[in-house]
Design a protein around this nucleic acid. Sequence first.
DNA 1: CGGCGTCTTCACGGCACCGTAGCGCCGAGG
DNA 2: CCTCGGCGCTACGGTGCCGTGAAGACGCCG
Lengths: 229, 229
Amino acid sequence: MRARVLVVDDDPALAEMLGIVLRSEGFVPSFVADGERALAAFRDSRPDIVLLDLMLPGMSGIDVARAIRGESGVPIVMLTAKSDTVDVVLGLESGADDYVVKPFKPKELVARMRARLRRGEDVAPELLTIGPPGNQITIDVPAHTVSRDGEEVKLTPLEFDLLVALARKPRQVFTREVLLEQVWGYRHAADTRLVNVHVQRLRAKIEPDPERPEIILTVRGVGYKAGTG
Amino acid sequence: MRARVLVVDDDPALAEMLGIVLRSEGFVPSFVADGERALAAFRDSRPDIVLLDLMLPGMSGIDVARAIRGESGVPIVMLTAKSDTVDVVLGLESGADDYVVKPFKPKELVARMRARLRRGEDVAPELLTIGPPGNQITIDVPAHTVSRDGEEVKLTPLEFDLLVALARKPRQVFTREVLLEQVWGYRHAADTRLVNVHVQRLRAKIEPDPERPEIILTVRGVGYKAGTG
DNA sequence: CGGCGTCTTCACGGCACCGTAGCGCCGAGG
DNA sequence: CCTCGGCGCTACGGTGCCGTGAAGACGCCG
């Protein structure tokens, strides 16, 4: 029952290190150094999880992630150098489930991989993605940023918290009372219309067509939920 | 699988020593003695990492670093004599990722090279760079200096610590409470406005236009973060 | 088809948050 | 003893965020 990992990275030294770490942690790693081979290897071996460098020769990690995501729901963890800066926002929207910034602690990487594999161990993911395919937004929790189509969307603190609350459990409906408690900290019910207003403001910023919301959906008579497609 | 190192140094004795050390540590080194050859060799062999002496005949290490950085993101580790001091500031902004001061312990050099290559082992880098392209500042942690556009920026100890705390995890937002703990050592919350004031003082010194900060950014309702692009 | 409840949309005022300037203490160095 | 830089603290003004109220649109029911 050892998980098979596909590592996509063009840095041989890093690959070697990952090999040692992953094997000692009970994973079965395989390695490729560029995007084309990554896709072929993925289709061939169907790994349980993919580790993907953002910077690759030729086909970028972004394209690889998109391609894999197009044909599988396999967990993808991105490796990014902090110097990548400009590409980060775009990279995160490509369908990755989580990311770690180089240099990273091997333990942290393994913890995040395990968390993606078995939902039991709760390392809060750095990235949350919601919305139907073709209309997704990505939330970078520690950076407190939200992006769509590679553009950062400016949100107020309250809007951000509300979005995160919904995105943490996509498809699950939250009543206004629950949201008031989780986001506002109100212990016992206040005016629930507050929630309506802020959902509306949020939609105005993140929905391409706020009149037909696809990311934050209304469940009439109950509350709201985040859509995933 | 073994990392290829391009060593740029005009001192044959040092080169010989480096050859022995690097080979014994599993690297595959190649050597050139001046800047022009360095560039040619780099374009030709595309090494995994570059070791670069700051003092070179003809084209200086600074220019070489800039040229390489202009066409590749390859890790560059500078070798500097402690007597260089004056040139160091300029050299550090040329795009190097780390540096070691001669005379150095072979073990330290190798550790720093590994840290740049396999990002897993975290040797804290000597150099931190933050700010958007074209408006970057470089922090030399052991030297306790900060420079922008080749000019050293004078900071007080507190300002320096605050800047380093933010720069160690760029893009990530820090609350004022966390900063008070990390920088001031206050265990449980004091007046967080203290942080505001020092951020402002810091900006006055490092931001070209303090009214439109690009290096230290405010995240309203949350805290501050260092920008990278 | 009509009515009612639910949700959406807009406008507006209070206020928390942040940026900025200024003052005073304290310790280091002359 | 005096000077000066570094730091803590307060005060004040502006900006944008948030909460409320009220009217308009929509869907679900009889």
